[in-house]
Computed example of a mutant assay.
Amino acid sequence: MSLRSEQARDHAAVADVHRSGFGPGHGDTVAQLVDALRRDDPSALSLVAEEAEEVVGHVMVSRAWVDAPQRLVEVKTLSPLAVTPQWQRRGIGSALVRAALGQLDERGVPLVFLEGDPRYYSRHGFVRAGELGFVKPSPRVPDAGFQVARLSAYESWMTGTFVYPSTFWEYDCVGLRDEVPAASELG
């Protein structure tokens, strides 16, 4: 398996990964979200995993904010993450998350938020954000699923309400919806 930055030629394959990874109920919406995030945040980190020159996994990390008492802090949100079902449980999702966090730490990003399965993401340094004083953006986000990873540039005053960009709201991708694969299925 190899990991690399997504290229324009990968867009159709990335959409297919999300459609198959999230299934018929949610996959099209997530594929559309990825396209919209590319337009909304051209500096978003977008990595693909390849096996035999086929894109089998994808992670996107785009801008978001924490509305802290001192000032608005630009942070990142890790969403979405998907692996083609036949390649799940082989460590591909984990490799994508580790690579993304490493690059973000090098770039001086202080915090990375996500909504996901704590059993999966805790292996990568994510903890319940509410326990650190962060306020979730919607009551539909489960307390256990609202998670954050603190990176090297984090400072203790950087706490407050997590704010998604409007793109997540436009595609109704905040909080629980129909059943989607648990991150633990991604490996």
Rank of each mutant, 00 (worst) to 15 (best):
A182W: 00
K136L: 13
S62P: 13
P42V: 13
F113V: 03
S156N: 14
P165Y: 09
L45R: 08
R38H: 06
P142V: 03
V34I: 10
D16W: 03
V148C: 10
Y171H: 15
T77V: 15
E54R: 14
G175Y: 09
A36H: 04
D41Q: 06
L45K: 04
V55G: 03
T77Y: 00
L47M: 11
Y164F: 11
R107Q: 14
R123D: 01
S5W: 05
L101P: 01
A95W: 02
E53P: 05
V66A: 13
A8D: 12
H18N: 11
G175W: 04
L111I: 01
D178C: 12
L78R: 01
S79R: 00
S166Q: 15
F113S: 04
Q32N: 09
A182T: 10
L33P: 07
V75N: 02
H124R: 09
P118L: 07
R150C: 14
R107V: 07
F126N: 05
D143L: 05
H11G: 04
V73Q: 06
V174D: 06
D28A: 11
Q86W: 09
T161M: 10
L37F: 07
T84L: 11
E74L: 02
G175A: 08
A36Q: 11
S94M: 09
D10T: 03
F113M: 03
R140H: 08
L45Y: 01
E6Q: 10
E185M: 00
G116E: 01
S62V: 15
G125C: 11
L3I: 15
P80V: 07
S20F: 11
A49W: 01
P80F: 07
A49P: 01
P137C: 05
V34T: 06
E155Y: 00
V141P: 03
E53A: 13
V180K: 00
A95P: 03
W169N: 13
R128F: 05
K136V: 13
G27T: 04
A64D: 09
R63A: 14
G93N: 01
S20C: 12
A100K: 02
G160C: 10
V141C: 06
L96H: 00
G91P: 00
E155T: 12
R90I: 10
T159G: 10
A129D: 04
R71K: 07
E54T: 09
R63W: 03
L176M: 14
A144D: 07
S62E: 14
A149S: 15
A153F: 08
W157G: 14
K136T: 11
L72I: 11
A64Q: 08
S122V: 02
E50W: 09
T161Y: 02
V73A: 09
V112D: 09
S79I: 05
V14W: 04
G102I: 05
F126W: 11
D10P: 00
V66F: 03
H124I: 08
